[in-house]
Every structure is written in C-alpha cells, then in structure tokens.
C-alpha cells in the first residue's frame, strides 16, 4: 500500500519571510490530519500550496492518482492539476462565500463539478444534487434557492456537498468551523466525521480550534513560524505535549 499523499520538504517563502519550511507528512485513505498553530504559523500557506493556489518554492507532494499512481502534483501540468482539483480533490474554505457561487442555485452549485467532468443529463445531475443536499442535511426542496438565502451553517454544508459530489479522495479544509455558532459547529463536525468514515476520505484540516482537532483528527501537526514543531497521534500531542509551544497552546485553552 502507498499513502494517498506524500509531502516532502515543502517550502514557501514570502520574500525574506518564511511561509512554511521543510514540511513533510504522509496521509493515508480514511485519515484526518489536523494542522494547528496560531495565525501566521504557516498552516494556511501549507494548505494553499497543496491546493495549488500558491506555487511552492521547493518540495514535493506525491498524490496517488487513480490512473497513473503517485505523481508529484507540483510538477504536474496545470491542466492535469486542475482536473484533479475538481475531481479527486476538494477544498473547503473557511468562508463558504469564497467556495460557493452565490449567484446560482444550490442545485447548480452541487452540480457544477458533475458538469465539469462531462455530465450532460439535466435530470440525472439534479437528482444527484438533491441526494447530496439531503446527505448534508439541507432540505432538497431548497435545491433552486440561491445560497445567499442560506444560513452560515447551511452554506458551509452546501460547500461540502459541492465538493464531495465527485467523490474526491483528498479533502483540504481551512478552518471549516470558523465563524459558526457552537451548536452549528457540532452538527458540522458530526457530519464531517460520518463522511470521512463512510467515504474513506483523507482530510487535511487546518484550524486553531483544538477541540475540533480532538474530535476530528487522527493525527496532528503543530506549526510555529512556518515549521512543524511537534506531530503525532492527536490525543498524545494534546494530552502529553512535549514542545514548549505545544504546551503553551494546550494550556492556553480556556476550559468550558
């Protein structure tokens, strides 16, 4: 067996400033990797490099493609990488308004990826969109409503449906629960966990919320100043932190 994603020595600088440096990890199917750290620690830079939104200055990211086995996505032709990005990968953004098309209906938002890979039967696309709305707990009767009429939690669930409709194997998430009410967060976490389990998704989730990491991530990487300072099993890192920064992070959380 090979990992779904192998990242080696990923580096990105902004001029003299370091975005992230020498980051590496393996990600296996069904595995959720949490990346934590404060703002500016490089976790979003890392995610954006992986998503192809930001060219890295160095490093490799080998993704186990369905057709040709492991390929370094940083050295792939752009067209190929973008095709992966809309089929086998998903990118869930913190602000659902950045990841949705607000001027078309919920159904069209979900159906877009299907149409992008060649679906040309309106009835079939619509039926699949309705199924996904139901799966993310949105009333299928709202299929023709625009996402601008949805609540924040619904928008985030719609963004997830829109991303998962092509059955991607790798999901990148940037603070997916940020900005949501606590009760809405719980619902989303539960949904995500079910999807990870049922679809065997591999997930990289960036967050500063340690509770989210504990409930969702199998493994966690702690980043500071662009580097990984500690990594391991989530509960081991959170309950027995070794690095001074991790200890500070864990002890800074206000107990509810």
């Amino acid at each position: 067996m090979t990992p779904l994603l192998e990242v080696r020595n990923l580096t990105r600088r902004y001029g003299a400033r370091t975005g992230c440096e020498g980051v590496g990890f393996d990600l296996w199917p069904g595995e959720v990797l949490g990346i934590v750290g404060e703002s500016g620690s490089g976790k979003t830079t890392l995610l954006n490099c992986l998503a192809g939104l930001l060219p890295p200055d160095g490093g490799e990211a080998w993704f186990d493609t369905r057709e040709a086995g492991p390929r370094d996505v940083f050295r792939m032709p752009e067209g190929e990488r973008r095709r992966l990005a809309r089929t086998d990968w998903a990118f869930v953004r913190q602000n659902p308004r950045d990841g949705l098309r607000l001027n078309v209906s919920a159904g069209a938002n979900v159906g877009e990826r299907l149409m992008a890979v060649g679906a040309r039967h309106y009835g079939a696309i619509r039926a699949e969109a309705a199924r996904w709305l139901e799966r993310v707990e949105i009333d299928p009767a709202r299929i023709d409503d625009r996402p601008s009429t949805f609540s924040g939690g619904m928008q985030q669930r719609l963004q997830i449906a829109r991303n998962l409709v092509t059955r991607p194997r790798l999901v990148l998430m940037d603070e997916p629960t940020g900005g949501l009410d606590v009760s809405v967060q719980a619902r989303l976490l539960d949904l995500l966990r079910g999807l990870v389990r049922d679809l065997g998704l591999a997930v990289v989730i960036v967050t500063h919320d340690l509770a989210v990491v504990r409930l969702l991530a199998h493994r966690v990487m702690v980043m500071k100043d662009g580097r990984v300072v500690e990594e391991g099993l989530t509960d081991r890192v959170l309950d027995d932190p070794r690095h001074p920064y991790t200890q500070l992070l864990v002890s800074s959380v206000l107990a509810a």
Binding site: R82, V104, G107, G111, E112, M115, R126
Partner: peptide, 10 residues
Amino acid sequence: EYGLMHVKLY
C-alpha cells in the same frame, strides 16, 4: 474547462 457553461444552462 467548460463545465461552467452548463451551470448557466442548468
């Protein structure tokens, strides 16, 4: 990449 055109028709 023309999936978007069909989004409009959809």
